[in-house]
Structures are given as structure tokens and as C-alpha cells.
Amino acid sequence: MRPFAYHRPETVAAAVAQAGGADVMYLAGGTNLVDLMRLGVLTPATLVDVTRVTSATIEQTPGGGLLVGAGVRNSDLTAHPLVRSRYPLLAEALLAGASGQLRNMATVGGNLLQRTRCSYFQDVTKPCNKRDPGSGCPARTGDHRNLAIIEHSEHCVATHPSDMAVALVALGALVHVEGAAGARQVPMPGLHRLPGDDPSRDTVLVPGELITAVELPALPLAARSLYRKARDRASFSFAAVSVAAALQVEQGVVRDCRIALGSVAHVPWRAGRAEDALRGAPATEQEFARAADIELEQARPLPLNGYKVPLARNLIVRALADLAAVR
């Protein structure tokens, strides 16, 4: 890999200050960044190691939510009793991701910022608009079996690979960031962006901004939630499609729900249309299927990934049916 400078500051302010120059990247668990550096996909001149500056603690917020430090390891987050009881979909999503070894290293902040596993993106000898803007998207007409079916663009058909982020989008988490211009909070969905004509940018963060924490809102509905991940290999495999869902049913009627899909779009996809269609509807399998179909009307599958449409539909219906215990 390209030689790089390495800094390990002790405070967020110092980290942000050191990230001011060009070609600087933050390093946390390194489970994706180091791979990409070895492949030559990313060639930062400077790494700022943030493992000493971001919190690795999980605290309760006054409003009844949780504030998760960006440095919390995936394995610690999924094991936390309050995460398991209040946000089962998040605990399950984390456990569905990667391997035990990777979860022990990977942090919450880094997980949100991992890059697509599109094979063209990872091979520097091939064009890729995300890696090399303007060079083209060979995936669109090539191997896109596991790439996007919703809101892809002619410039990029990549998917976001995270499981955790799907759960966070369903929960409506708030991402706390700090940068040279100060601190701000970015709601999810909203952190990740659609590819449009600039797929090189995965998120709305500006250069130098550092994720410091993720805030999980109080959401009683999430106590009855789950994460389902369909995949080729039974473990250590990215999703073909995944679903995070929470459901609240009162007297046979859907009072509220949250649905998000993974591996269908450039962003962890909040299925807002399906949610809208379900609120107030009878909690029946027919209604769940109807809502899934409404969401997936916007799907524009490519020649090799049409299977994701029935897969996503079936996963949504199954998840909701299981939560409603109607099947």
C-alpha cells in the first residue's frame, strides 16, 4: 500500500483539527479501510486513529433512548442488555453481520461508513464511478446480481453493505458528528445518500467530519422487532436482501410500524411507503403483502437481480407476520 502518516490524537478536537488537510481519513476498527488500502482502492496520505477519542460507552439518555459512542465495538453493542430488550432488531442485525472476529474489531462509526462490496469498486484495474468519478459503471451491464434494485442511477448500482445501518434507519437514529464547522446531528435515514450523478460520496458528511455517537430514540414499538437477512452463505456473507421491522398491533389493527430494507439500494432503505400503507390497516398477511407491493412498485431491477423483488416482498411479509403472530 501507499505509505501514509499515522496520528493518534487524544481528543475529538485534535482529531478534527488533524483531519483538516487533503487526503486524510479516520481509522477506527479498520476492518474495511485497511482492506481497501491494501487493494489500492483508498490511498490516504494520512490516517487519524480515532480509537482513543470516540466514546466506547453506551449511556441512557434523559428521553429514554440510548447514546452509543462511535467507538463502541459491534460485539459490545449487540450484547448490551438494553439493546437486546429495547431494540431487538438492532441486536439481531449486528449479529447477522460479518464474523465474530470482525464484530470484535468493528466500531459503530466505522460500520456506518463502510464501503460497497461491489467487485468493480474493489478492483482498481476496472472503471468505477464511485472510486474514480467519470470512469463509468461496469456493474450496470456486468455482474450486479447482488446490487441495487431501488433508486440506482446510470452512474452507480452499488448497495450499502451494512446490516446495522438498516436497523438504525428503521429506528430513526440520530448520528452525532463533529467537524471544523462545529457539531451537528444527522438523522437516519439521511446520513447516506443516493448515487445520483455523484456516487463517489456515500454520505452527507463533509470532509473532516467525525461521527462521535449514534443516538437511539426512545421507541417502545421497537421492543417488538426483528431483523431477517437472506443470504447465500449461512454466515459471514453480505445480505441478498435483509429487512428490519418493528410492529405495534392493537385490536388487530396496525397502530405503528417501522420497516427498512438492506442490500436493495445505495442507502439502507427505509420502506416509508409500506409503513404509510400499513398504519391503520388490519394486521393480516394480505395487508402486509399489499404494503410490500406498494413499496416495491418503485423497484427497477437489473437483468440479474430481479429475484430481489420477490425476496424483499417475502421477507417483509414474513417479518411482519411473525411480529403480528398471524402466520
Partner: peptide, 18 residues
């Protein structure tokens, strides 16, 4: 391009313990 695309163990799936 004329080459194999999935040249690592994350993309070329070999059965895992599970």
C-alpha cells in the same frame, strides 16, 4: 474484462461452519 470478478473469500463463497 476477461477475468474472474470475485477473487476473495468474501465474494467467492466457500461453505462456512454454519
Amino acid at each position: 474484462f476477461g477475468d474472474f470478478l470475485n477473487c476473495d473469500l468474501a465474494q467467492y463463497h466457500i461453505a462456512a461452519h454454519a
